[in-house]
Design a binder for these strands. Structure first.
Lengths: 153, 153
DNA sequence: AGGCGCAGGTCGATGGCGTCCATGGCATCA
DNA sequence: TGATGCCATGGACGCCATCGACCTGCGCCT
């Protein structure tokens, strides 16, 4: 992981469909060299996936909400987690410091679906309570921040 | 926007680097047809960008936190927003219903940097108070949910 | 100090792919 | 029913991904 790897990652975070030839031009290496570097970054798990970012309204998922979950005392965290994992509406799931053990980002099509989802989560064994906040609008999302190699300061 | 467009979007959300030939195979069309459809989805803004998803620890951004912001009464929301927008650490920014007008997702390298960021946000004109919760671990993030055409039910 | 081995780079070739164009079918509408 | 416009098809061409061969610089071991 050197400065060129970081540069490649930044470029792919800006546009994941850049060709290897284009990347090679930008970092000043040959295309095969870039190909090998990117392959190693993928194999090492540094690059996890390449995803298209979508206007959620256009695909019928226009309602975004954040849900905090308070666990029952003595609840089995693994049970709660695996119950959450099978709910496709949950886009992201963080395990948090604080009273609310989990913080979720969820996407649904309508407020009615959000209501059903909240009910389902509240009914889950191990969940004591939830707190939901609805996003009225998204100012920006997943804006990539240039990476900083810790070794490079 | 028909079922094939939705399928293409789902495929590109799974792997944004799929070739047009591969996409064409999966949806049963020719490559030029897929090329044109994807181009229109991009032009319409339905597909916003293609991004590599990264292991944040590997690029020196291993600390994730969620920050809620309470605005001053009478604060100019646009001023607050433009002040937030220039902070690269803020990955996502939602305008929320509730006491906390904004909910941020932020990434920094260390707890010390998080502290500095919080101070900077609190000092921002129009910000009354903030509430920060640190993510101890990320269970999953940006998991794509298959799109549902509202017209198709 | 010298030689060996390896990691990682460039170069060149080839096959597949992206992309443009002309053609033809189909549905819509007058 | 005839015209029209959109869209998929298929072919062609040039670029790109990808593989193999060779080269260079560096570390290590003797």
């Amino acid at each position: 992981m050197d400065a060129i790897d970081l540069r490649l990652i930044d470029l792919l975070r800006e546009n994941a469909r850049s060709s290897y030839a284009e990347l090679a031009r930008q970092v000043g290496l040959s295309a095969p060299a870039v190909h090998e570097r990117v392959g190693k970054l993928e194999a090492a798990g540094t690059i996890r996936a390449y995803r298209a970012e979508v206007e959620h309204e256009a695909i019928g998922l226009g309602v975004t909400a954040l849900i905090g979950i308070v666990e029952d005392s003595g609840a089995d965290t693994d049970d709660v987690l695996s119950a959450l994992r099978v709910m496709p509406e949950i886009e992201s799931c963080y395990f948090m410091a604080g009273v609310e053990s989990y913080q979720l980002t969820v996407r649904v099509g309508t407020i009615a679906e959000l209501e059903q989802l909240i009910v389902r989560i509240n009914r889950t064994r191990g969940v004591a309570s939830t707190r939901t906040a609805i996003a009225l609008s998204t100012k920006w999302e997943n804006r990539p921040q240039p990476g900083l190699d810790p070794a490079l300061g």
